[in-house]
Design a protein around this nucleic acid. Structure first.
Lengths: 318, 318
DNA sequence: CTGAAAGCGCTTACAG
DNA sequence: CTGAAAGCGCTTACAG
């Protein structure tokens, strides 16, 4: 910039004015500056500008694992909104490790990102308090953080499981299992809540064994249908039941989208949501804060929808 | 930092020394500075430091669409290597739009990223020349750029198609189709090259109709097996052939991994590669440049492997 | 319409 | 072992 000023025979400030399109420059002077700019191949150093300005126009998105589809699609939603606002996006993965989350987050804060969108790891987030006080906005996605209140964008897992189980009940199933592994995880807990609500509403009793199923245990279980709490569990269930649904010909509803679900045997009903919507919602919350909103914490819930393949589904065997 | 210096009663430089762990500070002075740092909740502004230092310790990864699995998994590979080097990662998607690629790339350059990993759009990349001269390293992935020489990390699509077709030939197929759409796209061209080589090597003639198949045309085609050039085409083929392989009971080999490929009917053989490997390789090339390598352009090829489900496959019908 | 000065938060030489 | 000065590349007040 100094070089440009020298070459054009003007002051630094004038170059700055031209570069920023500020008024108050003779067309003549402006074009002289422009010439110098192109001749020297000058490009304004954004970092330097932002050092002076205070804002960096950057966001950080801290995912669990950027390689999984949910994280990536969510990030794409964040990116879209960031782009509309002229923001650039930093990304990183925690692999669910709290130490890694903290290290990543703090290094983004040291870079002075304006805001952070975080899939929280199980650890506490106290380390974030001082950063938030220092003016960095933070929104949590997919799970609420444990030790902290903040804006959140979540998925309506409760409603998703309820819809899935209601679908099975409508088909005549009465003994329905829940295959979900770790019930202490936030998502499993939500799904189990939805399952329980649907069963209770229909007046159906729930045997404890039905909610502590394992994939291998499916074949010897009393259930005629099963709700799977994740794509992985759905895959395991299908593997156990085999391509024809097994001797049990069990109905399967899974949480989470599958490629080519319609080509799977046994045919599968799926309850899924659009992760990009979560990302967009989170980014909107974040920009709300950056644009001055300072009210109480907000919470957005993205719904899940059921994609049924009714005609090919298994009715209860008995 | 100024505040810290004031509070600890030392000069700016001394604070800098403590923060950077440089030698030449009395333990006593150091602890006084440390106290001031924690009391004031001071965190060094990385951007300011880097403005002085010249390097930003950031990379940019410009994908086609961050939401698709290939792009995301590739990015994860880049991230891993970046992390090892203490670099942070910017990301963005082009949606294959050259204008968007240019806009994204230039704004990353304005932020003075040290390097760029780009999935090139079809457009030219002349706009990058001056940036590269200015010292920004660039590596292209998945496709070579059209108008420019640079380091590249690619997938061995040629070998992938050859392996897939050889697999079909070994099963006895002689009339094998290639379902690939736009033959002008880089990947399709490479795959078609591998297909042709395998057929030629086996002394098998290729009817022009076999390489210009459409998904709907499959049922009336003379081929007994088909190689699909992408996950999408594989899906379309399976959709057309139906869950039992259709009246044609055609053998299908597809390029690109599928969820639950083993649960698909008709059973599917897949040739796939690990996108994270491409990302890692690209990042290594990039850091090679940043670490001073200035030799001729390098090209890395990541191999693809065939995952056969031999026992369940369809032999040729005639 | 244009410019000289001070400053953003840090580091790099150089002195003491 | 410690510090005062100058500078990274830009912008923000303020004058003229």
């Amino acid at each position: 910039m100094k070089d440009v000023a020298l070459r054009a025979g003007v002051a630094l400030k004038t170059v700055s004015r031209v570069v920023n399109g500020e008024p108050g420059v003779t067309p003549e002077t402006a074009s002289r500056v422009q010439d110098a700019i192109t001749e020297l191949g000058f490009r304004r150093n954004e970092s330097a500008r932002l050092l002076r300005t205070g804002r960096t126009a950057t966001l950080g998105y801290i995912a669990e694992n950027w390689a999984d589809r949910e994280s990536a699609a969510l990030g794409r939603g964040v990116e879209e909104v960031a782009r509309e606002h002229g923001f650039l996006l930093f990304t990183g993965s925690t692999d669910s490790d709290p130490a890694r989350e903290e290290q990543l987050t703090l290094s983004l804060c040291a870079r002075r990102v304006d805001g952070l969108i975080i899939v929280p790891t199980p650890g506490d987030h106290d380390y974030l308090r001082s950063e938030i006080e220092a003016g960095i906005a933070a929104v949590f996605v997919l799970r609420p953080p444990v030790t902290m209140d903040a804006d959140t964008a979540l998925v309506d897992e409760h409603g998703a499981a309820r819809a899935g189980v209601e679908h099975l009940i409508a088909q005549g199933h009465r003994r329905i299992g829940f295959l979900g592994g770790d019930h202490s995880a936030y998502r499993s807990r939500q799904l189990l809540g939805g399952y329980s609500e649907a069963m209770a509403k229909a007046g159906l009793p729930v045997d404890e064994a039905w909610t502590s199923l394992t994939p291998e245990g499916l074949l010897n279980s009393a259930v005629t249908a099963v709700f799977c709490a994740s794509r992985d569990y759905t895959a395991l269930a299908l593997r156990t039941l085999g391509p024809t649904g097994g001797s049990r010909r069990m109905a399967v509803v899974g949480f989470g989208a599958f490629d080519m679900a319609e080509h799977l045997a046994p045919r599968l009903t799926v309850v899924s949501y659009d992760p990009a919507e979560v990302g967009r919602a989170a980014a909107e919350l974040l920009f709300g804060r950056l644009d001055g909103y300072s009210g109480p914490d907000r919470k957005v819930q993205i719904p899940a929808t059921l994609v049924a393949r009714g005609s090919a589904e298994f009715p209860p065997a008995d």
